[in-house]
């Protein structure tokens, strides 16, 4: 019997390609967000709202990941931003190689902000680095306030949590302060926004933060007036 000591990270290959993506995006001054959530939390709606509010101020491109169909990509393309669709044909998450191929189809020189909308899934995308600046997790009030405890890895690995569908709070069994407490138990540094993509509430605050982060590298920005 002989033993070979390996001690290698299983996802080292993915991490390596993700690092190449990160380097390329950095060289081109692209601020990249990996947008994650359960199916139906409102990632695409959030993109639509965000692009319609700040699309004229920031050059946005979108990579749309979906298990099947390019329906989301078509929705986003209606807002006149470059969109590359990745259909995973069954796979439950995006990997760095798929994103690398998608990036090659984008004009990075004309992109300041890149959204990668991941496959709707709170488990699998958490483990796969794509080369993003940060993960942002969207959670909606209809999903209940215990989601962060049930899917800790995703909330741990995200820098921002956006609580969507706050207009539905009176009708659903979701204690929003409990939702926030649960998320902070997992990740005390999490930045939290409360929005409704239907009523538009909270979208300006989120967009102001976004613009500051995208443009912050170059200019000092006061609160934007829309």
């Amino acid at each position: 019997m002989s033993v070979i000591t390996v001690e290698r990270k299983i996802l080292a290959k993915n991490d390596e390609i993700a690092e190449q993506n990160r380097e390329l995006l950095k060289q081109n001054d692209v601020f990249t967000i990996n947008l994650v959530s359960s199916p139906g939390s409102g990632k695409t709606s959030l993109l639509e709202k965000t692009i319609s509010l700040i699309g004229s101020k920031v050059n946005i491109s979108v990579i749309e990941g979906d298990v099947q169909t390019s329906l989301d990509a078509e929705r986003v393309a209606n807002y006149n931003v470059p969109v590359v669709s990745i259909v995973t044909n069954g796979a439950c998450h995006l990997e760095a190689k798929l994103v690398q191929d998608a990036i090659n189809n984008l004009d990075l020189a004309k992109t300041e902000l890149l959204f990668i909308e991941n496959v709707g899934n709170l488990v699998c995308p958490a483990g796969f680095d794509l080369g993003e600046e940060m993960k942002i997790v969207v959670v909606s009030t209809t999903e209940g306030d215990d989601k962060p405890l049930k899917y800790p890895k995703m909330f741990r690995n995200s820098d921002v949590m956006i609580i969507n569908k706050i207009d539905l709070i009176p009708y659903v069994n979701c204690d929003i302060s409990k939702l926030k407490d649960n998320a902070l138990l997992i990740n005390p540094g999490l930045k939290i926004f409360e929005v409704s993509c239907t009523s538009g509430e909270g979208i300006k605050e989120w967009c102001n933060w976004l613009i500051e982060n995208v443009k912050g590298k170059y200019i000092h920005q006061t609160q934007l007036v829309y």
């Binding site: 019997m1 002989s2 033993v3 070979i4 000591t5 390996v6 001690e7 290698r8 990270k9 299983i10 996802l11 483990g127």
Partner: peptide, 11 residues
């Protein structure tokens, strides 16, 4: 952790 730690061969 998510690692391949060791590989043990029969001989």
């Amino acid at each position: 952790e998510l690692l391949v730690s060791e590989i043990i061969l029969k001989n």
